[in-house]
């Protein structure tokens, strides 16, 4: 050890305010963690006490050990599923956000599209899976299409609401500056839409993962979480199914948290993120 100041320790903001922040984060993390640990322990004990058959409900400890044994395969399959969910989300987002940006100024257009977005959100999208298979084939293409059909209306609706939320005074202010449409869009409407967009995105990432796994479950390659679940469930390999579920959960939560962190960072000016 040298006596020189450790750059990490010298970093600004390591004051009492920071410690208070840590206290707040601990308050957010510790109670749910305790609930989780208790639930798993209860599960383990229940399997033991009631002598539940392994193929019906395996012990959590068994699932965990197989999870780590199969980790490299699971992560590979997870990556494929994530790829489908991600590409579907990007495509769905491009369509949803694009349509919202095109229609938000024109009332009849926004409302005309809004009805179909609402209908599409009510349709169990997975029932469209067979159709997308006919259109785009049994592999990734159809699954990406299904994910984008599921996510586009969500991102359309949220973005549209946000774009239309811009303060009327601020719109008049931009008009008084003789600002062009594009300028007003980027400088005013987009910042207003961002909080709504992120709310939509947080919902969409979870849905994208779910829809990706279910459409994989319906057919195609086994080299993804949905395909793996289908294959192992058919052979009553319950523990294997559970490891895939754990991986799907981990990826889903991870994706959600990445979005939540970006949201927090981008919108630190927004009233909902300023904290105490």
């Amino acid at each position: 050890m040298t006596t020189d100041a450790d750059p990490a320790a010298a970093a600004p903001g390591a004051g009492p305010a920071d410690r208070r922040d840590w206290g707040r984060y601990a308050g957010l993390i510790v109670p749910p963690a305790l609930v989780f640990v208790a639930a798993v322990a209860l599960w383990e004990a229940a399997v033991e006490v009631f002598e539940i058959q392994r193929f019906l409900l395996p012990r959590p400890s068994e699932i965990v050990s197989l999870f780590f044994e199969d980790f490299s395969r699971l992560i590979n399959q997870g990556r494929n599923t994530l790829g489908v969910a991600g590409r579907g989300l990007v495509l769905g987002g491009a369509i949803g956000i694009g349509l919202a940006a095109l229609s938000f100024r024109t009332r009849w257009m926004a409302e005309g599209l809004g009805i179909y977005a609402a209908v599409l959100k009510a349709v169990p999208v997975i029932s469209l899976a067979p159709l997308t298979v006919v259109w785009f084939g049994i592999e990734a293409g159809s699954k990406i299409a299904t994910v984008s059909i599921a996510t586009a209306p969500i991102l359309f609706t949220f973005t549209l609401v946000g774009l239309r939320r811009a303060d009327p005074n601020a719109q008049e202010l931009m008009r008084s500056y003789a600002a062009g449409r594009l300028r007003t869009f980027w400088s005013l409407h987009v910042p207003y839409a961002l909080p709504f967009f992120f709310s939509g995105l947080k919902i969409s990432v979870t849905i994208a993962m779910i829809v990706a796994i279910i459409s994989e479950y319906f057919g195609g390659s086994f080299e993804n979480l949905g395909g793996y679940i289908r294959n192992e469930a058919n052979n009553v390999h319950t523990v294997e199914v559970w490891t895939a579920i754990v991986m799907a959960c981990a990826l889903g939560i991870g994706l959600y948290m990445i979005v939540a962190i970006i949201d927090r960072f981008v919108l630190r000016w927004h009233s909902s993120k300023r904290g105490g």
């Binding site: 303060d167 005074n169 601020a170 202010l173 005013l188 000016w269 927004h270």
Partner: peptide, 12 residues
């Protein structure tokens, strides 16, 4: 230049 009753500033 137009000045509104609300300051109409951009929080971001």
């Amino acid at each position: 230049g137009f000045i509104f009753q609300a300051p109409t500033l951009f929080d971001w």
